[in-house]
Amino acid sequence: MPARILAVDDEPNMLRLLKTILTSKTDYEVVTTNNPMEAAKLLKEEPFDLLITDLKMPVMDGMDLIETVKQIDANLPIVMITAYGTIETAEEAIQKGAYDYITKPFRQEAILITLKRALEWRQMQLELQKLKQ
């Protein structure tokens, strides 16, 4: 089953590029929203394997989103997209439970590798859980 990814960014153009890359270079299924408030709703409604989100967004920023998401699925890997120069905040995001961050602009390969790693981690977490049960 191909991995399902939810991408959140308030800039629709960025979302589109992201979706284009992911769907042309991988078999991931990609759902996007430009509204961070919708992310929680989507995560509750449908199963996802990974969330990739912009850090700086109106009303609900990436940091708020981490907390919301952690309540829905504590094991969902979150990859944060940050602008150049906000590394400290990105590190704070990792502290809060994001899996990784990537600084934009970034190379196509960079995001593909980051997501692949995050999904492998997700897989491991799920297997670990099964063993514990």
């Binding site: 153009n13 960025m14 890359i21 934009k104 602009p105 970034f106 196509q108 390969e109």
Partner: peptide
């Protein structure tokens, strides 16, 4: 370099 198509960027990048 960003215009070669290897990169993802947003309009914030261009403005910046």
């Amino acid at each position: 370099e960003k215009a070669t198509g290897d990169f993802l960027f947003d309009s914030g990048y261009i403005y910046g």
